[in-house]
């Protein structure tokens, strides 16, 4: 079981968390985005093998979303960070 460092609550067991996948930038203004770019945003992910930045939510705890760097192959966890008031993918 992964031990995940919630930036608000400290390390907690994996079962308290929900995985949110890769942070993606919502293209705006959406009405001016091409069909292809919109489809990429909706469906295409890098699916990195190795060190990657992911969104996680401490759903069974404080309820906060945060970003975490994790090796998707070895499951090693590096660091987590609060989401700033700017937009996530920016």
């Amino acid at each position: 079981m992964l031990s995940i460092p919630c930036p608000f609550c400290g390390p907690r067991g994996e079962h308290e968390f929900q995985w949110g996948g890769e942070p993606v930038t919502r293209p705006v203004p959406a009405s001016e985005v091409s069909d292809a770019r919109w489809a990429n945003y909706l469906y295409l992910r890098t699916n990195t093998k190795g060190r990657d930045r992911e969104l996680w939510c401490h759903a069974g705890g404080c309820g906060q979303w945060f970003t975490m760097e994790r090796d998707t192959m070895t499951h090693e966890v590096f660091e987590s960070a609060q989401i700033s008031l700017g937009r996530i993918g920016a």
Binding site: L55, Q64, W65, I83, R87, I88
Partner: peptide, 14 residues
């Protein structure tokens, strides 16, 4: 509720 929270926290946190 989870969807509202996620959009608020990750897309429109301000």
């Amino acid at each position: 509720l989870a969807m509202l929270e996620q959009w608020h926290q990750t897309e429109y946190p301000a």
